[in-house]
């Protein structure tokens, strides 16, 4: 019987625990707002995972893992028409391009990565169909779920913490006026360097995330670490690109006659004073 629901009501951690403890075999399909992810399990272990938007072929995964250069990727792609992942894997091993271990490790990392992505989804319809196996031509792995569940739970806690610290991506950031003395010794990560050029109160975090191609979580992580390092501080974004600043007061007061607006506030002040 299929297990159906929404991640909002039944979390991924609960689902994976169920699959792990009951040693289930089957396919979990989760449909998010922009993409769908399909994960296969065998006897309660992760066997295979794929997304609807990425290249899930073996050659694509090896390229993404940087085991194949772009030129090699294009060359192999052009020559493996109709070849299954299993056949290609054997070919690559026999030609001494990779060991079996290299290929399995690369696939394992990719599948875990796909599954981990689901931990960042707060919503999404899921359906678990028992006894549905991965496509025959795909190479499968066997990864215990315990560590994935633990790591996923840690990610969820981190996400909740980040959302507490940075509840909205509509705010801006600026460099602090007087950075601490330890700034000279700071070592920034690649992501932090990518964000630094866009630090300006005119840019919202959402805009920075878009231009630097960071996810909502990643931009929160980067900004949080920059704030903690004392380099930047969060401010209200002073302007959206190409649009005038947001009115700070309700439209009917800001857009109306200013003198009328002030007179209205004075009337309230007089009344409150007289209470």
């Amino acid at each position: 019987m299929a297990i159906k629901g929404n991640l909002h009501d039944f979390t991924l951690t609960q689902l994976l625990n169920l699959i792990n403890l009951a040693q289930k075999t089957g396919t979990l399909v989760v449909e998010g707002s922009n993409e769908a992810i399909e994960v296969f399990f065998t006897d309660g272990k992760l066997a295979y995972a794929q997304t609807g938007q990425e290249d899930n072929s073996l050659v694509g995964i090896l390229h993404k893992s940087q085991l194949l250069s772009s030129a090699q990727f294009r060359g192999i792609k052009a020559n493996v028409n109709g070849m299954s992942d299993k056949e290609l894997g054997l070919l690559l091993i026999n030609a001494n391009y990779f060991s079996q271990q290299d290929i399995l490790l690369s696939l394992q990392n990719h599948f875990v990565d796909v599954l981990n992505r689901l931990f960042t989804w707060m919503e999404g319809f899921f359906q678990f169909e028992t006894d549905v196996s991965p496509p025959e031509d795909k190479i499968t792995v066997r990864v215990n779920l315990e560590n994935i569940i633990l790591e996923g739970s840690r990610q969820i806690r981190e996400l909740e913490h980040l959302e507490e610290e940075i509840p909205s991506l509509e705010i801006g950031v600026k460099f602090v006026d007087r950075p601490g003395a330890n700034v000279a010794n700071l070592k920034l990560s690649t992501e932090e360097w990518r964000v630094i050029p866009y630090i300006d109160p005119k840019n919202t975090l959402r805009q920075i995330a878009k231009v630097t191609e960071l996810t909502d979580i990643e931009i929160r992580q980067v900004i949080y670490s920059l704030v903690q390092a004392g380099i930047v501080e969060m401010v209200r974004s002073i302007s959206h690109q190409g649009t005038p600043p947001s009115p700070r007061l309700p439209d009917h007061i800001v857009k109306g006659d200013k003198e009328e607006g002030k007179s209205l506030i004075f009337r309230i002040i007089d009344r409150i004073r007289s209470l």
Partner: peptide, 24 residues
Amino acid sequence: SKDSVKTVLLELLYSILAELEAVD
């Protein structure tokens, strides 16, 4: 305390007034 609450509301209204003047 009514007086204390009045003070808070008045301070908010002064801030609103300042904001309107800033818009000006």
